[in-house]
Simulated scan of single mutants.
Amino acid sequence: MTDTDPRTRTTPTAARRSKSRGAIPVESADIRLIRIFLRVVEAGGLSAAQSELNLALSSISEKISALEARYGLKLCKRGRSGFSLTPAGEDFYKEAQRLLGSLDQFSNRVAGFSSQMPRSLAVGLVDTIISDPLCPVSRAVAKFAEAAPSVHLEIATLSPGELLREVIGQKVDLAVGSFPRAAMGLDYLSLHDEQHNLYCACTHQLFDMPDPQIGIDSIREHRIIARSYWASRDIRVFAISAPHATVSNMEAEAHLILSGAYLGYLPDHYAAKFPGQLRAIRPDLFSYVAKFQVAARQDWQSRQATRAFIEALQEASSELRAR
């Protein structure tokens, strides 16, 4: 076989691919560039990340280019056509999340070595729970602020599904809510119960109809709201093929119900904020109890601030239920 046989030739491109790129050590300058990259991705583009990063657009672009050059990867497409990640960029983003999550864990663990609280604690909540007389969050915050005055609290309000993803992704340390689906790898600790009912507005045609005249068949004749995180339950209860509107939080649901055009579920404590405007329909048929819990990663007891806040929640919840 001759040297020019096509079966034995190696093209320059193939030769380059055959060489594995050596591991590049992560340095402090890289961490800063990676953090900027994550902010850009989570904001949805360079322009959208400007205010959060407090950097000029050209400076952000230069730093992304420097990160690409550092690791020899094309991470994203940016320009007039918009912002999008390349396949390599998507993989890099996931690894960057793991890296920074590990660094945060390291910082918290090292802080624990000297019996000091970490610098910050991120807590996730579902919306509208402030009007619930059994909600322990405010009391727990007071207890935690007294026990850990130097810890910076970060509070995020999201839907139940989003909260669980944030806990798993280590974006928040713990979450308080009623969770329709249990995600694996988390602990769930009971707090209290929240009563929900199906509501209509005073302008809805069912408002003045006596309960005995309202059945599931008559409910199906009207527009029904489903919650994006609990849609299957709402559809199953009323045996309908699809909802007429979908919401991601209780305030959005209240807007639709108060329009008089829709029926939907609300917590009783939140519906009480609209006296004379809302009516619970057939509580004997359609009411249910939402179990409120605190969700945290299974190592929560080894994380000082998380453990302190959860213990404050449990103590406050016990006090409120005992009243």
Rank of each mutant, 00 (worst) to 15 (best):
S150A: 14
G45N: 08
L46D: 08
T11I: 06
A145Y: 05
L163S: 06
R321I: 09
R227Q: 14
R21H: 10
K171S: 14
R297I: 06
S28W: 06
S59K: 09
Q298A: 09
Q301H: 08
Q170R: 14
L121P: 01
Q170M: 09
A183L: 11
A43Y: 03
D268A: 12
D268C: 12
P25H: 08
G112T: 04
P243D: 08
L164E: 11
A252G: 15
L163I: 08
K77Y: 15
Q277M: 13
M1S: 15
I31N: 00
F144C: 04
A308R: 13
T10V: 15
V137E: 01
L46W: 03
I281M: 02
C200W: 00
G260E: 01
E253L: 09
F207C: 02
A245I: 04
K273T: 11
C200F: 02
R32F: 07
A43V: 06
V110P: 08
L125Q: 09
A290Y: 01
S20N: 13
L67Y: 03
A122V: 05
D284V: 03
A156Y: 14
L121N: 03
R220D: 01
G124S: 07
R119F: 12
E95W: 07
R78M: 09
S58N: 13
E251K: 11
S190D: 14
F286P: 05
L46T: 15
G79M: 02
E311P: 04
